[in-house]
Structure formats: C-alpha cells, structure tokens
Simulated scan of single mutants.
Amino acid sequence: MNRLVTASGELELTRFPHRPQDPLRAWDAADEYLLRHLDETGGPQGALAVLGDRWGALTTALAAHGPVQISDSFLARSATRENLLRAGHEPAAATLLTTRDAPPERVDTLLVRVPKSLALLEDQLHRLRPSLHPGTVVVGTGMVKEIHTSTLRLFEEIIGPTRTSPAMKKARLIFATHDPSLGPGPGPWPLGYSLPEGIGAVSGRTVVNHAGVFCSDRLDIGTRFLLEHLPRLPGARRIVDLGCGNGVLGLAAALTHPDAEIVCTDESYQAVASAEDTFRANGQADRAVFTAADALGSVAPGSADLILNNPPFHSHQATTDATAWRMFQEARRALAPDGELWVVGNRHLGYHVKLRRIFGNCSTVAGNPKFVLLRAVRRGR
C-alpha cells in the first residue's frame, strides 16, 4: 500500500489482490501529472468519464465528481472498489463500467490513461466518440515510453486536433479537441482469422479477437506449442482455460473432450468476450462458461480435472511473476485430486521451480529452445 498526495489530501492506494510486500505502486507519475493539471485548471467539469484507470487512482482521487470509470480489467475494477472504500467513499460514488458495457450517453470531460495496447485505445475512442461534443475536454496521460506517434495519430483521427505537454517526471499529457466534422467511421474490431493447419482439432477453425487481446492477428507461438502437445484426459468432467485470451486452448479442449464442461476465465473483459465469440463461431458456445475473474476465483475448490495455462509475465509495463505465481496457487486449490495443470512458458522464466514448490512435483512434457511445457499434478485430498 502507498500514498498518493493530491490537492485534497493523501490517499492510501493498493493494487488488487493486495500483497503487503508488493514493490509495485497503484499509481505513477502519469496519474500525478494529470491530477495536478486538473487542479491547476479548475478540476473536471460536467459529466466525467475515466478510461483505462489502472488501479483506480484517478477514479478515487476524483470521486467527488461522480466519475464513470471504463476498464477492461477485473483486477483494476476490484482495486478501485477497495480504494474508494478506503478513502471513505460510498460504493455509489463512482460508476464502474467495463469496456464491453455501453458508454455514457454524454461525456463533458474525458480522461484517458493510455493503455499498453494501441488497439484497445483505438477501439475505446471509437466507442466513446458519439458521447463527446465540441465542448468536451479530452486529456490523456501516460509515461513518455507509452506515448508514441501512433498514439497521437489515433487521437487526431478519431477525436480531433491533438497536442502534447512537456514531459514531467518522464510522464506526458495529451490534449485532444473534439472535431465534429471528423468522420472516423466504425472501429475495425473485432477481428477474425482462420487457424493454420497442423495443430490438431482446431486446425482451420475460426478465432475471434476483440481489441486489446494478446496476439489478436495471429496465433501466439507459446499457445501453438501447447496445442501441438494438448493433453487428452478421457474422463475429464471440467477443463479450465486459465487466462483464456481468445479461447483457442479452451476450444481445442472442447473439441477433444466432448463430454467435458469448459470454463474460460480471464481478468480481461475483452478476452472473455473474444473467447465466447470464438466458441460461438465454431458452434461450441453451449459447451462453456465464460467469466471475468481474478485467476480461478470463479471455479469451486476441487472441481477441475485439467487446467491449461499460458500465463502472462507483464503487468502493464512492469515485468513480474506475481500473476503466474497466483495462477499456480489458485490452480492447486481448484484442481480435483489427481487433477493436472499444464503450463507453457518461456524457458528462462523457470516456472518449474514455482510449480514444484506449490504442487510438490513438476515434469517436463516437451521443450524447444524458446518454450517449455510443464505438467503438475494435484496429489492428495
């Protein structure tokens, strides 16, 4: 937990799930810069929307203005709720929407925390443009390394004339002016493509990707490696695609295990929507449950026979193994006795060490110079 100093006082903020020894803060210089700018210019006016607030720092600091937060992250929304309560605000102080919800009908002030994914920014600016008007104040913020010419071009093409501020503490602001004469048209998302041949049951199948989902225009090579060695457990009753992305692993499990229920879960709402649309495009939508959650929070203990996992090792711009560690711990809780966790990851990440510590066992199923496929079994009851 750490303290963000604002014009109205100090805020104790935390990421979610809260880890006392977590060295990563719930805010950074980009959040500070934007809040300082708002304080110096009289604060946000009218109906306020906050897009992409990473851990709720902006929403919490501006709770008195009744903000609408729009987020793709289950974890960010959970952190926002906790931070609002910690700051003494009622749950109704802010409206928390996902990127899949209908945007507000009118936005007078739009604050944009620039996301890592340029595609997600493009998609959300397209979705929000009808809510804007010539008087809408649009201010983006991000670290200098997150703001590129392509970022500014999106604001220019979808919103209107755009300029940037000087850098401060390696952060920068973006100012865009709504141009009613622009006709950017509909956004290009979602995108679909056919999987290549040679990867078993899903060869030639259709995959659907909403904006912001990892490897949205091609099959991730780590996922392909797991597909090439996909386990078959004829007696499996429930199989979980953990961190499902576009759901291709879950789809492969559904096609090779016709009697199993499939659970596709991810902390990204865009990913969950992608997985559901992928299943629907392949006539398998009634085979699966799709849920946004923290790791396996939606899966009952001891209920899964097989869990497939290609864990991320980044949290926004930070490299961290905290997500993988939590996924592995949650997998052990969710697995039935003798249930199996199959993990694909970059060889250098050393996931086998964590898996042995958590499960007491770990075997290597396959490997190549870049990736390793690992199997851990839930022993005992």
Rank of each mutant, 00 (worst) to 15 (best):
G52H: 04
G185S: 07
L97D: 05
M168A: 14
L242I: 03
F290C: 04
V138Y: 02
Q21V: 09
D305Y: 03
F175P: 05
W325H: 15
P369H: 15
G46I: 04
S165E: 01
E12Y: 07
A322E: 14
P130T: 13
L128C: 09
I174A: 01
P91H: 06
G245K: 07
L152D: 00
N310C: 08
A167K: 13
I199Q: 12
P231W: 10
A253K: 08
R106C: 00
A26D: 14
I307F: 06
G283D: 05
L154F: 02
P301D: 15
C264S: 02
N246H: 10
D72C: 06
D217S: 09
S298T: 11
A260M: 04
L182G: 07
L349T: 00
A76W: 11
G56N: 13
T177R: 15
P231T: 08
A236V: 03
K116Y: 05
Y33Q: 14
L355K: 10
L182V: 06
D321T: 09
A94R: 11
A336Y: 06
P186W: 03
R3E: 14
T364H: 00
A93L: 03
L226D: 06
P184C: 11
G380N: 06
D22P: 06
R332N: 09
T6Y: 03
S216Y: 07
G42H: 08
D28F: 10
Q317P: 02
H348D: 12
T6W: 00
Q45G: 11
E156K: 08
G350A: 11
M1K: 13
H210Q: 06
D305N: 04
P17C: 03
H229W: 03
V299I: 12
